[in-house]
Simulated assay, not measured.
Amino acid sequence: MKKKNIGEASLPILWSVIKAYVDGKVGAAGSVFDTFEAVRTVFNADRSITETNEKGETLVTVFNADGSITKTFTNVDGVTIALKTVFNADGSIEEVFV
């Protein structure tokens, strides 16, 4: 995946998502992941899922070989936020930004 530097205009959005998570006001990934509404969904040959919303932003879900799930949100400026969900043997779930 090609990474793009975060522009100054995108920083407030990124920080608001992280702050909301830290403050416990939203789910682990904040509103970016929880309220994403796709208008187009594609099931890819590699078994990942690509969803696109009306703004042209994407949410790609990858089912990793280790059983974890990685969701990567990319906005129209190319700024990405990724969240990995790990299902532990003890039944607990970890969600970490990657």
Rank of each mutant, 00 (worst) to 15 (best):
I13C: 10
G24V: 02
D34C: 06
D34E: 12
D34N: 10
A28E: 00
T35S: 07
V17A: 11
V17E: 10
F43K: 11
W15K: 12
F36M: 01
I13L: 15
S16I: 01
V42H: 04
T35R: 09
F36V: 02
G27Q: 06
D23F: 05
I18T: 02
L14E: 03
A20L: 02
G30I: 05
V17N: 07
S16M: 08
A28D: 07
R40W: 05
T41Y: 04
V32N: 09
A20N: 09
F36W: 07
A28K: 05
S31R: 13
A29W: 00
P12R: 15
K19Y: 10
G24P: 06
W15R: 12
F43S: 11
V26M: 15
G30W: 06
V39A: 14
G27T: 08
V39M: 12
T41G: 03
T35F: 01
A29T: 04
F43I: 11
F33T: 00
D23V: 06
F33V: 02
S16W: 07
E37Y: 06
V39P: 04
A20S: 11
F36H: 06
A20I: 01
E37W: 07
G24C: 10
A20G: 02
I13A: 15
T41E: 08
G30D: 02
V32L: 15
T41N: 08
F36S: 03
Y21D: 04
V32K: 01
I13F: 13
V26T: 15
A28S: 09
T41K: 03
E37D: 08
A38C: 04
T35W: 00
S31K: 12
E37N: 10
I18C: 03
A29M: 01
V17L: 09
I18L: 11
V22Q: 14
P12F: 12
V42K: 00
V22D: 12
I13H: 15
V17R: 10
V42D: 05
F43T: 10
F43G: 04
I13P: 00
E37I: 13
G27E: 01
K25W: 04
A29P: 11
V42T: 00
D23Y: 05
V26C: 13
A28Y: 03
G24I: 07
F33R: 05
K19I: 01
L14R: 11
D34M: 04
G30A: 03
I13T: 12
P12A: 15
I13G: 13
T35C: 07
E37A: 13
F43Y: 15
V32H: 01
V17M: 11
T35Y: 08
R40T: 01
I13N: 13
S31Q: 14
P12V: 12
I18G: 01
V26P: 09
V39L: 12
V32P: 10
V42M: 05
R40L: 02
F36G: 03
R40A: 03
S31M: 14
V42A: 04
G27I: 02
R40H: 00
Y21R: 14
G30H: 03
D34G: 14
G27S: 01
G27Y: 00
